[in-house]
Amino acid sequence: MSKRRSDWQTRPQARIRKWFHEGFLALDDEIISQISQDSEPHQSYEALLEAQEEAVETRKHERTLALDRLDQYNVLVWARTRGRKVLSALHVILALVLSIMMIFFLLETVALMPRFGDTQAPGVNEVSQRYIEKGLDETGAVNIVAGMILDYRAFDTLGEATVLFLAACAVLILLRIDRNKDGSPVEELIAAESDDRHYEPRSDRILQGSAKILTPIILLFGIYIILNGHLSPGGGFSGGAIISAGLILYLNAFGFEKSGRFFTNKTFVMVSFFSLSFYGIAKTYSFYFGANGLDSGIPLGTPGAIISAGLIMPLNIAVGLVVACTMYIFYALFRKGGL
């Protein structure tokens, strides 16, 4: 910048340009300032030579780059024409080999299995016989189905509850409208809330009046079904669905502001996490220490009492909490994109 020329008018370049443009395009002030900035400082002969060598080097480099690019292009073309054929042929061969192996294994397994409808097959007799005969003794649950899904096949039920939780998390990722970092709502959220307010029957007196009467009854009924799951038909899944129906009714009647006082995203995450981890830990303990007649230290109680059947009632409660939270948050997310 120190060598900026101030005598631009005396340079031949500028003078020629001015002569060339004279008559139809006079140099205005901007062009003048551009020329004055673009003008190069004087260079020595060695510097010019270096610059020339550099230019030659850069051209060589560019040429090699271009050749490389040509090679890459050729490779791409090969991959898209002949390579694709080779790969698809490989795929077909591998798929055929895998399928034939699979068919072979399955056929062998089928050949080893008992005949269909065989009354002597162990799968028909022994499993259900064992459930019916020893289920009450081993699980302590009067309801055999609860004993099956929460004692014998408890990890299957844990997987189902986890699937629900994961589905809720995926919907949360996809549909949640986040706030800004300073806590102010983004435009989408404002639009969603105004839209929601437009359609929401929140100020409806009839709905509010009936919800005031019905919501406690529904919640009580859901709690009853969960707590009585080892004694009567029902359990965690159905009771949780009923509880979430009551929560959704409350939300419809009174809006997100009132329901947000007791149910937020944090509530959902904490309740689901603690329920699922309690389930996993308790069931791991009982499988490691209480399987096949070992003494796990969990009393089974007298069958038919409300506190009996060992772990089945706490596990029912955990499943019910997960189901209720999941269904409620599904509703909230699909309706407004958040809680």
């Binding site: 359609y199 029957p201 409806d204 009839i206 709905l207 009936s210 009467i213 019905l214 009854i217």
Partner: peptide, 21 residues
């Protein structure tokens, strides 16, 4: 009793939504 509570309310809400939108 439960159904007579809930069903007319839901019909009322459907009608109200129709009138609103």
């Amino acid at each position: 009793a439960f159904l007579w509570f809930s069903s007319p309310v839901s019909s009322h809400l459907i009608a109200r939504l129709e009138v609103t939108i």
